[in-house]
Write a protein that binds this DNA or RNA. Structure first.
Lengths: 201, 201
DNA sequence: ATATTTGTTTACCATACGGTTAAACTTTAT
DNA sequence: ATAAAGTTTAACCGTATGGTAAACAAATAT
């Protein structure tokens, strides 16, 4: 039997879609089956249970995000270059996957054990190199003193929050969809400048 | 009949608790009734439906948050003072209400119409004064040029994100609960410095 | 060609869930 | 003291939900 996409893949795609927009609790197996254009029983045939299907989706989605983080952490450019690079790339990526950050953050909050499984996975981001590099650039007088963890969280915060809190930010700053996109687009450069102005000597 | 707390209040408290930790979809009416120590039918007697109970909770919770924002926006201190003040107070507040930011962000994402109702409410934060003030301080040469909306979102992002993404940040920076609390506690000052270093001339 | 494994559909089940009803109990007003 | 209004409980209802069993179809192996 030939398919453009295997049934298993179709299910995963549909499940990704539904789980990302409605979360574990809000998603319905029937809805996922409908979206995949197949019978509900097939979901259980391939993934056994809602929980396991969800975990498959989560791992798949997280594996899209992790490389984004690893880039900034492990390449050989300077901290300043990394920040500019990451801020630009991450924002572009998120504009294409708007549900992703909320999905990850949410379900990680719903089930804290979940992240333990992820940590053991290869490819889970490691800050070691980034920390050493920050400390070195501080010693070399390139950067003003700052704790590497704090800097890292600041970088994440400034880049991720506009997507996490989109409806709230839209309402507070009184922007419609179009101007919000322009606003976020500008942040690709503005956020990098903001960070670098703060840490560069 | 005398009560330490009216039944209606007991229900709202229990509902706040359950809805904040499990969200609209994850929460069960029976669980809320159990937590409140009353019969399930009472939930409907006082609040008619899950949806209406949820809305009552949401408005109540949002009304805790809004004053925090209004403070920074509308008092008469300088931008620098506002940032230091807000960063300190907001972090303290959030440490006492850890589920709050996720709850708000989440449910606002789940139902974008919801925020329209909030916007019409008095007390919904308004950025007008803040914007004028930022522009004035830039003209006066106190601050380097920056768009007030961008600055505002940066302030929010740096303050809220550590609570929104707590499990992720804990895992990435390899902190246990104790060291995470210390980390966030430090941010009360570090974040303010970070922002001010970036925008002050 | 036939048997066996794999994939798919239909019909169904047990339970959980939000919500309702009707009656009992309690408080307040007359 | 009695009626009216307000509050609370237990029992129940219809439906949606995750999941299963068994029949059936298609592909693969023998």
């Amino acid at each position: 039997m030939k398919k453009e996409q295997s049934t298993e893949q179709q299910i995963l795609e549909a499940a990704k879609n539904i789980f990302q927009s409605k979360g574990m609790d809000g998603a319905r197996m029937q809805e996922i089956a409908d979206k995949a254009g197949i019978n509900k029983a097939m979901l259980h045939y391939y993934y056994r249970s809602k929980q396991l299907l969800f975990e498959a989706v989560f791992k798949n989605v997280f594996s899209l995000l992790a490389p984004q983080l690893n880039t900034i952490l492990n390449d050989d450019s300077s901290i300043e270059e990394k920040i500019r690079h990451f801020t630009n790339d991450y924002t572009s990526f998120m504009m294409k996957h708007p549900y992703l950050p909320n999905f990850i953050i949410n379900e990680l909050n719903r089930n804290e054990d979940f992240i333990i499984k992820l940590k053991n996975n290869t490819g889970f981001p490691n800050l070691k190199k980034f920390k050493v590099q920050v400390d070195n650039e501080i010693k070399a007088g390139v950067l003003s003193p700052i704790d590497a963890d704090q800097l890292f969280v600041n970088i994440l915060a400034l880049n991720i929050f506009p997507f996490l809190g989109k409806p709230l930010v839209k309402a507070l700053t009184k922007k419609d969809e179009t101007s919000y996109i322009a606003f976020v687009e500008k942040r690709k450069i503005e956020v990098a400048n903001f960070i670098i102005q703060s840490i560069k000597k």
